[in-house]
Design a protein around this nucleic acid. Structure first.
Lengths: 241, 241
DNA sequence: TAGTGGTCTAGACCACCCA
DNA sequence: GGGTGGTCTAGACCACTAC
């Protein structure tokens, strides 16, 4: 952490430290669940003060990349259901309950990426993708019909898997070494098509909440595209502003 | 900032400072747009270090209560359109454009609060509310049909106003001294009723994005209930996870 | 008891804005 | 030039966890 002060970016030291540590996560120096060195150890190693390291670690904690526990240490965040529920899964029952949904995979196919998929996922012409279709249940009733699109290149071994687990972000992490760091979503209301109507037990044309998600890896590259159709008669998408 | 260290709350000093300063905002000691004393002045007055004041001010900045500008000072946030657009209005055009909508008020009525309205807004039995219905346009086309419900008690002078301005949060602030600090929203897909269909130029039963918002004042009390129906054929609700 | 993160302090220097 | 926030450092003490 000596040079780069006068570089073209002009980032403050704590930002440089944060970027250095994120790069180590990308390089796999610390796997999910691993404990990081203490603040003083990192400070000594990087040649900065403990307060500067703390500011970088706090920022990464706010990004859900790390988990800090007093008396224990600083750990790389795990893709646990409880964390997914907090960060990514925003559907709640109208009576307030929030649970992680059960999933049933309907189809898993491999094929050439469409032009739209290539644009969204940043793929070259001719690139292939996996497409996973599944129905997700909340409290026993089917609520979400969704299609997940993954670049074949990054998920080559997916074809050899017998089953797709419920928590796919844990799968991406444990089996493919890919950490989903953040995502952006676009929400619309759209009418149920025949497929969704059949899977969710609603009428064709019934209003569904359509969620389009692009998930990004630690390095900011697109990892997953997901299109979900949700029956929101007894559920809602919740957020705080 | 001397006592309360051993109180029942056990809040750290920077949190106590933050709460003290928020209370001053509630009391109107600094109106929106006003400049706060410098960090050192506040530190001396409250008997804490400048670093502790900074941490409290940074927290309030993250809550969008304050705006800090290097070389200028720290200011109470204003309910400007640009800020509303950033914090509260999450609808964007499918091509990416984000603009503040134009509004046309359709009705403004006064009446007894329903049981549901009383529960949501925390009102006593027999309390009255204002109801404002309006249609909001984006790029010239009607996109949102919404009803705003306000406690009559807190917005007594509303009946004397000739017109309701486009930016109602600025109205709440400037005319009624009420600052909307945060809000929670619930999103569903729901079919267009006859009213919404007529206002938005869509078919009855067409899928609309229903947004239910509860806005909270600085002290955490409910201020406004809002139900919006949005035509999302060429627009979407955007958020980052 | 030792090690960790959490808090608080004091002081230095820089970048920015304005009169 | 004087005031503001932004950054960085060094050190102290506390609270929690594990052994």
């Amino acid at each position: 952490m000596s040079e780069t002060r006068q570089g073209p970016a002009f980032a403050p030291l704590y930002r440089q430290v944060r970027d250095t540590l994120v790069q180590r996560l990308i390089d796999g120096a610390w796997l999910p669940g691993a404990m990081l060195p203490s603040e003083f150890q990192l400070a000594g190693e990087l040649g900065v003060s403990q307060g500067t390291v703390r500011k970088a670690l706090d920022a990464m904690t706010a990004e859900h990349l790390l988990v800090r526990r007093q008396g224990r240490g600083t750990f790389v965040a795990l893709p646990e259901e409880s964390r997914i529920l907090f960060q990514f899964f925003r559907l709640a029952s109208d009576d307030g309950g929030r649970i992680f949904p059960e999933s049933r995979v309907v189809a898993r196919t491999r094929g050439a990426a469409s032009e739209a998929e290539r644009a969204i996922l940043g793929l070259a012409t001719g690139a292939e993708v996996w497409r996973i279709e599944r129905v997700r249940h909340l409290g026993g009733t089917p609520v979400i019909s969704e299609r997940i699109t993954l670049p074949l290149e990054r998920f080559a071994g997916l074809g050899e898997m017998e089953t797709i687990p419920n928590n796919v972000y844990a799968l991406y992490s444990e089996r493919f070494g890919i950490t989903v760091a953040r995502a952006s979503e676009k929400l619309k209301a759209s009418p149920a098509d025949a497929t969704a109507a059949e899977r969710l037990g609603c009428a064709v044309g019934a209003p569904l909440l359509a969620i389009e998600r692009l998930a990004l890896a630690l390095d900011g590259t697109p990892v997953e595209h997901r299109h979900s159709l949700c029956a929101t008669e007894r559920f809602h998408y919740r957020l705080e502003l």
